[in-house]
Write a protein that binds this DNA or RNA. Structure first.
Lengths: 171, 171
DNA sequence: GACGGGATCGCCGGGATAATTA
DNA sequence: TCTAATTATCCCGGCGATCCCG
């Protein structure tokens, strides 16, 4: 099999050992291991040019179910819909969520693992805990910004544009 | 400072770009980024990863890496790209940078080792500190001038024309 | 810190363009 | 005066959080 184009990076010894210790099977490359640990879609072989539809299909299952179930429409405030969406997003992919949640505004940070952290980064941010997760979000925003935050988050988590659009518009 | 013991691993191009795109601050090493993404405790001394002092002849290595890593494309404003470039240029060759940094306009001076000096030489120059260096730059300029400043600086530092062109166009 | 939701409006950063100077 | 280079005002879009309303 022709080699994929590889790049060289340097990692410290401890990290190197950590990666090595996560080998699943003999011959697994550092790249493969990292992809698994980072939850990046294992873009199979060098072959398939079109983006992974399978991955996109899986990632989004829970979100689509939420949309279709009418659960969102049942909520009667933007905040509730916002919180529900975040909760579903977290549960669908905690690792991606964790990595994506460092989005922030000019002064405020939008997500944190404690109420205090959000309170400290702005005035009257009205933090709320995201159900079923260790995270908190800022809540003192207009609806436009709530849509925006969800859109940013989903984009960083790797969701398809169409789905992002549907979800943020449903707030 | 003695270098930490480093190991080299190979990652595929996409993963490489993914890692680069998760840079939090300029100069963050691949190791640091991976540790953060993998949620490994950051061991002490992660703060300042000094770039390898470019020996004569290799001038441009760090700059090329910046270009190829996609780190610039990840920034979303001309100012950020401008600041990143300056930071990399400084680290690649502090001495040459120091000598080259006396370029100036008709009234304003473009670089200085203090905010006050820049403020004193013009109105509303909006100085910013260049990360990882003792220098400050003027920031209240249009994009054309930012390109210009970088081009002048790089020329004075002795970079090849082709590279200067690539870098300034990438702002 | 205790009413909650969130629209409205004030502020700020980015940087194009108008103004100025050589 | 006309042009080219440089300055820095000022507009625009985005963000914050006060404050009004149900």
């Amino acid at each position: 099999m022709p080699e994929k184009m590889m790049k060289t990076i340097e990692v410290d010894e401890e990290l190197y050992r950590y990666i090595a210790s996560n080998t699943r099977h003999i011959g697994e490359s550092a790249s493969d291991i990292l992809r698994r640990l980072l939850k990046l879609e294992n873009q199979a072989g060098a072959a398939a040019p079109p983006a992974a539809p399978a991955a996109a299909g899986v990632q989004g299952e829970g979100v689509r179910r939420m949309l279709d179930s009418g659960a969102l429409a049942a909520q009667d405030s933007a905040i509730e819909r916002f919180m529900t969406i975040l909760s579903v997003l977290y549960r669908e992919n905690p690792v991606a969520f964790a990595q994506a949640s460092d989005i922030k505004g000019r002064k405020r940070i939008y997500f944190a693992d404690s109420e205090a952290a959000l309170l400290a980064a702005g005035n009257t941010t009205k933090p709320r805990a995201i159900e079923g997760s260790p995270y908190w979000v800022i809540t003192n925003t207009n609806t436009g910004r709530k849509r925006n935050i969800v859109a940013q988050l989903m984009a960083a988590m790797g969701y398809a544009h169409g789905l992002i659009e549907r979800v943020s518009q449903s707030i």
